[in-house]
Simulated assay, not measured.
Amino acid sequence: MSTASTDLDEGGFTQAATAEIRGVDVAAVVAVPVVLVAVFALPLGVREQFVFESAAPTIRTAYLSHFVHRQQLHLFGNLAVYLVVAPVTYLLCVLAGRRLLFRATFVTLLTVFPFALSVMQLLFPRQREILGFSGLNAGLFGLLCVAWVVYVSKQFLSSESTQYAPALLFLICGVIALLTLPARAWRLEIGLGSVALGIGYLLLWVRSDQPDGARIRRGLNRPGYAELAGAGLGLIVSYPFVGFRDIVTVGTSVIDVYIHLLGFALAFIVVYVYLIVVE
């Protein structure tokens, strides 16, 4: 973790961000779209060999399928999401003094999560195939939620508490349930129950940390810090509507919202448990 202070009392946003950004981190973040574009440049017949099929799973396809796209629209959509979410998440982490958290999660997402997301497809009785980076993008959103809570707590609330981060998990899962579950699946009950739990966590968070109004106003008045918090919150709020629309087709394929939910929730839980254990 970074030991440099990123408290509001020291320096401006640009100065703090410049001091915390590392070339190796930028290179790692940039490498992902380069790899995705390079894989897409391969002949379609070669790419098809990397697609994971639940009826004939292999270790190779379990990993490589998450970096394969058949259509340009699918690739461009995933690239657009990644190129927005990854930099914002990185800045939230480093300006909250959590560089190691970003690095450890980023590496885990790119090495372990492809296997985990693929294996989970084997739970379905019908034949399925998966490809594309959206499941790993969903994992970045899971990290983004925890990073946002840590950043806001440190920069605006004089705290580094993470115990109330599940508020975002419950709120987002509640909205996702309301958007995607059929009425016969207890949609309202599950969705509203999850949202209620999220609101409960938020109330406990506010009551526990007892926000300092003067400090919050200082943060809002300093260029950069509030804008970054706003950008992160905007991405978090938009995620259910971007990743969990009704049925979306790309060519002859249907977007698998299950893998979006799995990637998001699994990453959130892994990051949250890691922080709780470490702290």
Rank of each mutant, 00 (worst) to 15 (best):
D212F: 06
N78H: 05
G243Q: 04
V34K: 05
H74A: 13
I255L: 10
V68C: 05
I190N: 03
F106I: 01
F13G: 07
F268G: 01
D256F: 14
L220H: 09
A265C: 13
V34R: 06
G213S: 15
Q155C: 04
G97M: 01
L197S: 13
S54T: 15
V242N: 07
R126K: 12
I130S: 14
P33Q: 00
L144H: 04
E10R: 15
L188P: 06
I269P: 03
P57R: 10
P125I: 03
F124N: 13
A4H: 11
S54P: 06
A55G: 10
P182L: 07
Y201F: 15
Q155Y: 06
L42C: 12
F40V: 11
A165C: 08
V107G: 00
F40P: 06
L169T: 09
D9S: 13
S2Q: 10
G12I: 14
I255Q: 10
G97F: 01
T105R: 01
L75Q: 02
Q121L: 15
A4K: 14
V32K: 01
R47S: 06
L169H: 09
A28Q: 09
V107Y: 00
V39G: 11
G219Y: 10
E279F: 05
Y82W: 09
L181G: 05
A19I: 02
V248F: 07
A138D: 02
I259P: 02
L262T: 09
H66A: 07
H260L: 12
F13I: 04
W205C: 02
V68Y: 09
E189N: 07
G77K: 04
D9K: 14
E48H: 07
P33E: 01
I255T: 06
A17I: 05
S158Y: 13
Q71F: 09
I276N: 00
R217L: 15
T162E: 02
T89N: 07
L64V: 12
Q121C: 11
A38M: 12
L42N: 12
R126T: 11
A147F: 00
Q71D: 11
D7Q: 10
A265Y: 08
T108F: 02
D256W: 13
